[in-house]
């Protein structure tokens, strides 16, 4: 099945990160293919979020590195990651609370637009056109995640599920090639989780590769094309869900010790 695939979208080579004496990541290597939903699971403290933060430039890895879309990712520049096409959501939702839902998504277009201060002040034709496009795109994205009726509400007043959706819409506004979701189902009930599953599946069908970090093993196994398991900062296995589920080491990691 791998013969007809081009280079992977993201490739991690021996990524290592330690905090003091704690080795949060031990030479993790994995690759995410274009168009797939890739799950990253592991028990609490296994290093999932650390891996995520290294990849998106929030942390500088102590060893190894990432190749994204054929070229290396610069470490320690989280604003560059978005420009390259990596968008993320946060485990503990981080929205711009005192801005409206629509504005939250509009600001997500920042990295794909160019108007500067002078354009804003003089309101030239190019700026006005760009502004209209930003607004339209943001409205479309709110529709896409089905929270268009909350467009003018402040983000911090949205329900928990809607905030998750808004965060995804904001990430999508950056036109990502890779969308990284950090425990998007955390705190959701069964209905909300099912709706989220549909949304993620839809996003993939529309052509965006997805990296999903999740606690909910059922969701991951049902949704992902391939799954990687981290335990104590090390990669246990990277394979299709059917294989991962039966792997003895994985079962031990989740049930054991």
């Amino acid at each position: 099945m791998s013969a007809n695939l081009p280079t992977p979208l993201l490739e991690a080579r021996a990524v290592a990160k330690h905090f003091g004496g704690v080795k949060a990541l031990r030479d993790v290597s994995l690759s995410i293919r274009r168009g797939e939903i890739y799950g990253l699971i592991g028990p609490n403290g296994a290093g999932k979020t650390t891996f995520f933060n290294c990849m998106t430039g929030l942390y500088v890895p102590d060893g190894g590195g990432f190749t994204f879309d054929g070229t290396p990712l610069v470490a320690d520049a989280s604003d560059k990651a978005a420009a390259r096409g990596i968008a993320r959501t946060f485990q503990n939702i981080r929205l711009f609370g005192n801005m409206t839902a629509l504005e939250n998504v509009m600001v997500g277009r920042h990295v794909r637009t160019r108007a500067g201060v002078l354009g804003a002040i003089f309101q030239n034709a190019a700026t006005r056109a760009e502004e209209a496009a930003i607004r339209q795109k943001a409205i479309d994205l709110l529709h896409y995640v089905r929270i268009e009726e909350r467009a003018d509400d402040l983000a911090r007043n949205l329900s928990y599920g809607d905030q998750r959706r808004l965060e995804i819409a904001r990430a999508l506004a950056t036109d990502p090639k890779l969308l990284c979701l950090d425990e998007p189902a955390a705190g959701m009930n069964a209905t909300e989780t099912e709706q989220l599953r549909e949304l993620i599946d839809g996003i993939r069908r529309d052509g965006t590769t997805i990296l999903l970090i999740e606690h909910d093993v059922k969701l991951v196994m049902g949704l992902c094309d391939r799954v990687a398991v981290l335990d104590y900062g090390a990669l246990l296995i990277e394979d299709v869900p059917a294989v991962v589920q039966k792997d003895q080491r994985v079962i031990e990691a989740y049930l054991g010790a």
Partner: peptide, 20 residues
């Protein structure tokens, strides 16, 4: 665009960086 980016920084700098 610039003004919204400023407000985003005001609200949450890490999230602002994450969207580029």
């Amino acid at each position: 665009r610039i003004g919204r980016a400023w407000q985003a920084i005001r609200e949450d700098e890490i999230a602002a960086k994450a969207i580029g």
